[in-house]
Nucleic acid binder design. Structure first.
Lengths: 201, 201
DNA sequence: GTCTATATATTGATAGAC
DNA sequence: GTCTATCAATATATAGAC
């Protein structure tokens, strides 16, 4: 990838995350990436095209950085899910609970916009769920009816997005930790054989 | 309240919900409320002031419309929580799963902005949690340690926001229903005496 | 209180030299 | 590929008559 294009993409990803899409101007984008307008419009037809490129890039990163955490060896199914939450917890800590989820923020701002954007958000969430489902697949057959693997998978992503949003608004890790604790409690009740589940009195 | 001010507020609430704050222009606001610029700036010092007024208005509505559902008589604690989710489900249905949560969307776009905005979002979420806590207070002492009422309350709001976001991105009620089903499963395990909890085999 | 007209800055995007 | 200069449109906000 051309270094200029990469610089624009990196800057855009950061700015869209920090401020959102509409609050980021072309001037911001050019300044943050160190490019001139001529250079920018050589690499991208316009601001909207950067957005779709950023969404595609986020998709790659999700797979490479986040969901890989859930594929780490030596973890139980519930342990894998917890590891993914741990990854986000570390990010929240580093960001002092600001910023929120890069995907979730853009979803909230742009989920009803142009098809190129809505479809990418849809795909991103689907990839998220696939990654979570992979963690829990080994114990899918232990789920009590009528719960399905897909139900639980969707629920885990729901908790992730809601927990990050609340932590951001509160500017505090507490809501995130509380949410993870409750989710873990439930998962341990569903899968009492999982090593993460401590025996109950 | 002056009718013009009310018209601006109503229009702004709708537009901020449909498009977000930054994607709504003054021209949009004036057209949708049927006011001229002179009139607008007589009632509000600027666009930002409308945002804070909308947030305050959403706060009132949350209490009056949403949390009141959880105070309806004749419902069990878990039933109350489910009733609030039912309220949102009806809204999602009417909106064909678009729009999302008016508070959540603005939180995603503006949680890191000016203190007047961030503080109001913080208060809105706190009010949300208070309303949920009121539903569950009667059974708070039945919670297994170390879970607290505040943990569960925060978790319920987490699920609400995450579920609405996912339903919006998917443009389908399914993720919402799946999330509610999982949450209900957990609550029924925690409170097996609640009438909503069906006896298990 | 509301109107119309307008000020002024910033927006996303383009032109043409190099 | 990148530069500088600049475009037309739109942004928020204001002025002053009524």
């Amino acid at each position: 990838m051309h270094p200029t294009r990469a610089a624009i993409l990196t800057a855009a990803q950061r700015l869209f995350h920090e401020r959102g899409f509409h609050a980021t101007s072309m001037a911001d984008l050019l300044a943050a990436s160190g490019t001139g307008a001529g250079s920018f419009y050589y690499h991208f037809p316009g601001k909207d095209a950067v957005l779709t490129a950023v969404l595609d890039h986020l998709h790659e990163r999700l797979d490479r950085e986040v969901l890989a955490v859930g594929r780490a060896p030596g973890l139980s199914p519930v342990g894998r899910v917890r590891a993914i939450f741990g990854f986000y917890r570390a990010f929240l800590t580093a960001a002092q609970c600001r910023l929120g989820c890069p995907v979730g923020n853009l979803a909230g701002e742009l989920a009803d916009s142009a098809p190129e954007v809505a479809a990418r958000l849809h795909r991103l969430f689907a990839a998220w769920r696939t990654g979570i489902a992979d963690c829990l697949k080994p114990v899918a057959d232990r789920l009590p009816a009528p719960l399905t693997l897909d139900d639980v998978t969707t629920f885990v992503l729901t908790v992730m997005e809601g927990a990050v949003m609340q932590a951001r608004v509160a500017r505090d890790l507490l809501p995130f930790d509380q949410s993870v604790q409750c989710l873990t409690d439930w998962l341990c009740r569903l899968f009492p054989d999982d090593p993460v589940a401590k025996p109950r009195t």
